[in-house]
Write a protein that binds this DNA or RNA. Sequence first.
RNA 1: GGAGACGUACCGAAGAGGCCGUAACGGGAAUGACUCGAAAUCAUUUUGUCCCAUCCGGGGCACGUGGGUUCGAAUCCCACCGUCUCCGCCA
Length: 428
Amino acid sequence: MIDIKFLRENPEVVKQNIRNKFQDSKLELVDKVIALDKENREIKQEVEALRAQKNKISKQIGALMAQGKKEEAEEIKAKIAADAARTETLSAREKEVEEEIKKIMMTIPNIIDPSVPIGKDDSENVEVERYGEPVVPDFEIPYHTDIMERFDGIDLDSARRVAGNGFYYLMGDIARLHSAVISYARDFMIDRGFTYCVPPFMIRSDVVTGVMSFAEMDAMMYKIEGEDLYLIGTSEHSMIGKFIDTIIPEEKLPQTLTSYSPCFRKEKGAHGLEERGVYRIHQFEKQEMIVVCKPEESKMWFDKLWQNTVDLFRSLDIPVRTLECCSGDLADLKVKSVDVEAWSPRQKKYFEVGSCSNLGDAQARRLKIRVNGESGKYFAHTLNNTVVAPPRMLIAFLENNLNEDGSVNIPKALQPYMGGKEKLIPKK
RNA sequence: GGAGACGUACCGAAGAGGCCGUAACGGGAAUGACUCGAAAUCAUUUUGUCCCAUCCGGGGCACGUGGGUUCGAAUCCCACCGUCUCCGCCA
């Protein structure tokens, strides 16, 4: 959500930004919202003048009543009644106009960073840098569920009976590997100075609608029946919710948090061939990082955040690359975003394992996350990034650490979390 | 889940239809004076948000949240949220 004052003063900048994002149908909204904003301020002036008048008269009545001059009081009551109807009409219109403005402002995209490549959709995203050699071994890499099977590490059949498609039982070494990755990622971020946090896994609807549109909510979130509660789709929801409608003293910035949570997603839509197994699922676990910082520091934090994910994957011997989201693929709230993608030696391509976003002050404005600084109050900048999200991450882990004999190497960094094992030996 | 009490500024807390939201009273914090410096003392400052005004300034809204009654609501009524105490249940 951008500042309406900025839009009012720089309509051409906002329009060019809309063109850059290939959302030309939204161009007319800019002029529309400017007109509504003008109307709103005119109404406000009149309404406020009427209210000021009413307050004044009410005080007079109070004074007259105190003096026992009831008749005079009754007389001026009539004056108020005359204005009351006008005030009511205007307030109703004011409410309408304000809602309309808010609705439009929610759909006006945030101003993208000048460094964001211009492109229509995800096919025009730009590879920034590769880390590690994308090796294709000279033996065949099986599908990830088949690798897991060899360790008796997964039971999808039972999961389907118990909870349906999109759920899983992880078993034995694979389950342990899953927990090890999460624990390792937690400590990895703590070592980098982030504060560890376990947040609520369910949140109220008002928090949900603060962080996403109704359409997004409907497509992603599971609702608890009979309660005003939703299962979180990512801990970013509850982590950023922590700051809703707060004023943070400047000296408490930056807030650098790393949170663990299970994540629940409906994942409405097509499930392709490559999305079988544990790639696209209704329940997964994630270590997340979020930063709330001063505006001038958000670019610096953005680069630090995605670098953390790259470093974590590299420490587990997984080749990755960073892919910059082009303007057309960038969500409306974001200033800039890069995906971290892990190498799949089986598919011989990279696939998404994390997403790092700088939201500028747009999210903070929407959620009223303010900072009390020396030179006054201002909106904070917010960022978020995936540290690691198994079980999807295990796909990359197993494929890249698989040996020809079917064993899987445990990188040194992870060994303490796997009881000191250097290798997992398959049961089959 | 049941019963009761409560929600007011940075904290504690008074106010129970108009004289009380630039919010009594107590504390904290900031600035200044005194001091070599500190303590003590004295003085001043200390909610957010929106609209109008280039500046000085003027005005609206907000006493957990949202409605209602009233010329006027922190105060009365309704719903919701939260906190505390006791009981029940539970890892």
